[in-house]
């Protein structure tokens, strides 16, 4: 599914125009993106948590050439599915 399916759900539930529902869906994801880019985690109860992790600089290898190189320090994003949802998807 894509964002258009979310827009349709909002349209059915709220009865606003399709355009406005699309804008609401965009804002939802935009808020999460902006919060994460500020370095703040986002926790949505019943769904899951978006957790940022800072990785230190480390040595690695280019898997193609075998050449050793430095992998710079970086920030990565992990998503941890909620316990409830994890259970639900394993019950079916």
């Amino acid at each position: 599914m894509t964002k258009s399916d979310i827009t349709s759900s909002l349209y059915e539930r709220l009865g606003y125009s399709k355009r406005e529902c699309g804008v609401i869906a965009d804002s939802f994801f935009e808020i999460i993106k902006e919060t994460l880019s500020k370095g703040e985690n986002v926790k949505i109860s019943g769904f899951g948590n978006f957790v940022l992790r800072d990785k230190k600089e480390r040595k690695g290898r280019n898997p193609k050439t075998g050449e050793e190189m430095i992998i710079s320090k970086r920030r990565v994003l992990n998503f941890k599915l909620s316990q409830v949802l994890r259970k639900a998807m394993n019950e079916k």
Binding site: M1, T2, K3, D5, I6, S9, L10, R13, L14, A25, F28, F29, K33, I44, G46, F47, L81, L85, A88, M89, K92
Partner: peptide
């Protein structure tokens, strides 16, 4: 509504793709 839709997709084993 948005979260319920996402949850439904996950439980049904659907893939979700949100551009950007």
């Amino acid at each position: 509504t948005i979260i319920d839709r996402l949850k439904k997709a996950i439980i049904n084993g659907e893939r979700i793709e949100i551009r950007g």
